[in-house]
Amino acid sequence: MALNREWHRSHRMPPKATRAQRIEWHAAHARACGCRAIPEGIKPEVEKLLKGNRKR
């Protein structure tokens, strides 16, 4: 998928983001842009969050 520049401009990763913030950001990123893969270190948590959001 191509880079969604507008999304990236309005959704900056916080400086010194906590693990929870990183998981939330990458889940939102995967839904809105997906220009790169989810980092392996947080991938299971991000995928769990994405699956949980689909049920709503």
Rank of each mutant, 00 (worst) to 15 (best):
A2I: 08
A2D: 08
A2G: 09
A2K: 13
N4T: 01
N4G: 02
R5C: 07
R5P: 05
R5D: 09
R5E: 12
E6P: 05
W7L: 10
H8M: 14
H8C: 15
R9S: 10
R9N: 14
S10E: 12
S10N: 15
S10G: 11
S10W: 08
H11D: 07
R12Y: 12
M13R: 07
M13E: 02
M13W: 01
P14Q: 03
P14I: 00
P15S: 14
P15F: 14
P15A: 13
P15Y: 07
P15K: 15
K16E: 09
K16A: 13
A17N: 10
A17F: 07
A17I: 05
R19V: 09
A20F: 03
A20M: 01
Q21T: 09
Q21R: 12
Q21I: 10
Q21V: 07
R22A: 06
I23K: 02
I23N: 04
I23F: 05
E24I: 12
E24M: 11
W25M: 08
W25Y: 12
H26N: 08
A27T: 10
A27P: 06
A28C: 12
H29F: 15
R31M: 07
R31K: 12
R31Q: 15
A32I: 00
G34H: 06
G34Y: 04
G34D: 00
C35N: 04
C35K: 01
C35F: 02
R36Y: 07
A37L: 09
A37M: 09
A37D: 13
A37S: 08
I38W: 01
I38C: 01
I38K: 06
P39S: 05
P39T: 02
P39Y: 01
E40G: 06
E40T: 14
G41V: 11
G41F: 06
G41C: 07
G41L: 12
I42R: 05
P44N: 05
P44F: 06
P44I: 11
P44K: 02
E45H: 06
E45L: 06
E45S: 13
E45P: 04
